[in-house]
């Protein structure tokens, strides 16, 4: 599971993680559940249907497949499996009956989405081997995450018996087992860090396993450490900057030098803020979570840079553990 506060780049990170885990001949599935078609956008492909299909080839062989789960389609799939609705299923959907049923019980929607993910996790091939080495779920943002994963609570919305109830029990077991980990994406800013740490507590209270803290869009620090604090307080020696620039053959008007100084101060304020955020993550939660870091991509994210991010993850030790 990959989650994070809105705007932290969790879909991009989930995609990079699916690529990293598929490296070297593995097969992973990247799942989205919010109907946003975020995966298609990140991989620059047409919208994904409710169907697993190959979306990328991983470094060293291996492949990433992707699936956009749709709660209504998943519900109809259940009906098909257990009751054989035939054509009526499609008509019901057109009437809005299926949407209605999933709306009636918000918990049902979540159970259907996590249930589909569980089905993918447990699916095996003819030789009994799992079809996927790992399933990466681009989960809802932190604000809705624990509700989404709290299938036990959602089951209160459902009848005490019946096929979906049985499925939900299996989902609870999987989510609370060591086979599931929730990785949280954060930026090194006060608000995302605070929200992420609050989510860690909520997840732990709900008995869900928290995995790694993924620090995203870490910027390059150009100022030497010792200059950061002074610069963050506005103390940048403009005349020294001017002399240094002149030495490199760049002569600027005083107001242009002021512009550079202002940029430097802003840079320093951010760097200092990032350092403070890192400090917090080193102390909280107790014990701190393992951490990996991804750089800010100045040119934005495209398919090529997804591979770069995946490599960065691999270089930091992100890999699949051998099956027990």
């Amino acid at each position: 599971m990959v989650s994070g506060k809105g705007g932290t780049g969790k879909t991009t990170v989930a995609a990079a993680l699916a690529l990293a885990l598929a490296t070297g001949g593995k097969r992973t599935l990247l799942v989205e559940v919010e109907g946003r078609q975020g995966i298609a956008q990140v991989f620059d492909t047409p919208p994904l249907p409710y169907e697993e299909r190959r979306i990328a080839v991983a470094p060293g062989g291996g492949e990433v497949r992707a699936l956009a789960v749709d709660a209504e389609a998943a519900l109809l799939e259940y009906f098909e499996m257990f009751y054989r609705l035939g054509v009526a299923g499609r008509t019901l959907r057109r009437m809005g009956a299926v949407e209605f049923a999933t709306t009636l019980a918000p918990g049902l929607r979540d159970v259907l989405l996590t249930g589909k993910a569980k089905e993918c996790v447990s699916r095996t091939d003819r030789d009994g081997r799992p079809v996927y080495d790992a399933v990466v779920l681009d989960a809802p943002p932190t604000g809705r995450l624990v509700t989404f994963l709290d299938v036990t609570r959602a089951m209160a919305d459902l009848a005490k018996a019946g096929p979906i109830h049985g499925q939900a029990e299996g989902v609870v077991e999987l989510l609370h087992s060591p086979r599931t980990a929730v990785h949280l994406v954060t930026l090194l800013q006060d608000l995302p860090v605070t929200e992420t740490l609050e989510t860690v507590t909520e997840l732990q209270e709900a008995g869900l396993g928290v995995g790694t803290m993924i620090v995203n869009r870490m910027r390059e620090q150009w100022l030497p450490d010792r200059s950061v604090t002074a610069a963050a307080h506005g103390r940048v020696d403009a005349s020294r900057v001017r002399t240094g620039l002149a030495g490199a053959g760049i002569d600027l008007a005083p107001d242009e030098i002021d512009g550079l100084v202002a940029e430097t101060v802003e840079h320093a304020v951010r760097v200092a803020g990032e350092a403070a955020a890192l400090q917090r993550l080193a102390n909280e939660p107790d014990p701190p979570l393992p951490r990996v870091t991804l750089p800010q991509l100045l040119g934005g994210v495209d398919l090529g840079s997804l591979y770069e991010l995946a490599e960065t993850l691999t270089a930091q030790g992100v890999r699949l553990e051998a099956r027990a």
Partner: peptide, 10 residues
């Protein structure tokens, strides 16, 4: 020369 480190960072 003088100020080269800060200038490079800037």
């Amino acid at each position: 020369g003088a100020g080269s480190q800060i200038a490079a960072a800037v």
